[in-house]
Simulated scan of single mutants.
Amino acid sequence: MEIIAYGVLADERPVLQAAFDQAFGDRHTLHCLKLFLNRDTAPTAAGREVVLSSVNDTLDAEVLRHLAKSGTKLIAQRATGYNNIDLAAAHELGMTVARVSYYSPHSVAEFAWALALAVDRRIVRAAHRTREFDFRLDGLMGRDLHGRTAGVVGTGKIGTVFARIAHGFGMRLLGWDIDENPYCLALGMEYVPKERLFAESDLVSLHVPLLPDTYHLVNAEMLGLMKQDTVLINSSRGGLIDTDALLAALRAGRLSGVGLDVYEEEAGVFFLDKSLEVMTDERLARLMTFPNVLVTSHQAYFTRDAVGQITETTVRNIEDYFADRTSENTLVHPGLG
């Protein structure tokens, strides 16, 4: 059987192929595509029972109906997030949907800190200057993080690692989540309402999933509560931040710096080379004009360790499908209610 994978990155492909060869040998072959799965590209999956999707694919009801009609029965998402998949439609169509419920939380948490430090200490601007032999320090003054307050929005696996690193810096910890994490409490974290977290924190980092209740969690109200010199970091999901509200805050001179590894309209832009095109997304283009904003292309997870774990879990999800098994990774299955 030929299995098709969408949105496969150049560095991901050999890892995925090696895992496939080891697990399936000649039983199944893998066809990797760079293009993303959406309404226009869905016909390329014709006849493939198993489809491996990426986080930037669009698996709405229309795409799922097309896939089901052409023989697809399993969607194996190579990511933790699944807000791009219409699970209700998949259930109605009798499809199985699985995801990667866990991979190295260190990859994302460490990258969030890389963004925070780069923004706080103006590292990107400094590097651009020194490449042109401009060694002035004008405009590059940062600040110590030791003794300041880190607000961790979401204290699951990734948020906990982020908090542990903040604790290592000697920062005061504020947290906001549905449940209090005993490990974070042991670090000295104080759980507070989100309004207080945004008002008191010198650094705010987002580590919650994108759900109806968290959509535009960082809105004009929350941004208005933040200190003038707060650093805001988002390495979770772009839809957590209201981009228009963020742009208004930046134009007003608020926030010392912003580090974004995700963007709410990143589909169709991130992971692609747009350098020879006109950037038609005016909000993203405007974000890029602020010297205190650093945008990266959804790469926080992108380490050898994390990609290896994602690949191994995806292979297990395929094996479970053929064995008619479910696991903690199963989101939709014909045998589940």
Rank of each mutant, 00 (worst) to 15 (best):
M1F: 02
Y6F: 15
A10M: 08
V15A: 14
L16D: 14
Q17I: 11
F24Q: 07
G25Q: 05
F36W: 05
L37P: 04
A42T: 06
A42R: 03
V50W: 07
V51W: 01
S54F: 05
V55M: 12
N56E: 14
D57S: 06
R65H: 09
K73W: 01
A79R: 10
G81T: 10
Y82S: 09
Y82F: 15
N84W: 08
D86F: 07
L87P: 12
L93K: 06
M95Q: 03
M95S: 01
V97L: 09
A98G: 02
H106W: 10
H106F: 08
H106L: 08
A109T: 07
F111S: 05
A112Q: 11
W113N: 11
L115G: 06
L117E: 12
A118V: 11
A118Y: 05
A118E: 02
V119R: 07
I123Y: 06
F133A: 14
D134N: 15
R136C: 06
R136F: 00
L137Y: 14
L140I: 08
T155P: 00
G156M: 09
K157F: 02
V161N: 03
A163H: 04
A163G: 01
G168D: 13
G168E: 14
F169M: 09
F169K: 08
G170V: 11
R172V: 13
L173T: 06
W176K: 01
W176S: 14
D179C: 05
P182V: 10
L187M: 15
E190S: 13
L197G: 04
F198N: 03
A199Y: 02
S205H: 00
L206A: 00
L206D: 02
H207Y: 02
L217E: 04
V218W: 04
N219G: 07
G224P: 06
G224Y: 03
L225F: 03
Q228P: 11
T230H: 07
I233S: 11
N234P: 08
S236L: 04
S236V: 02
R237W: 08
R237P: 12
A245P: 10
L247G: 08
A248P: 03
A249F: 11
L250M: 04
A252R: 14
L260G: 13
L260V: 14
L260D: 13
D261G: 13
V262R: 06
E264G: 02
G268E: 10
K274E: 04
S275N: 09
L276N: 04
E277Q: 15
V278I: 12
T280H: 12
D281A: 02
E282D: 14
R283W: 00
A285G: 12
L287S: 02
L287I: 07
P291L: 00
N292Q: 15
V293G: 05
D305I: 12
T311G: 05
T313P: 03
T314E: 05
R316A: 15
E319C: 12
Y321N: 01
R325P: 03
S327H: 03
L331M: 09
V332A: 10
G335N: 09
L336C: 07
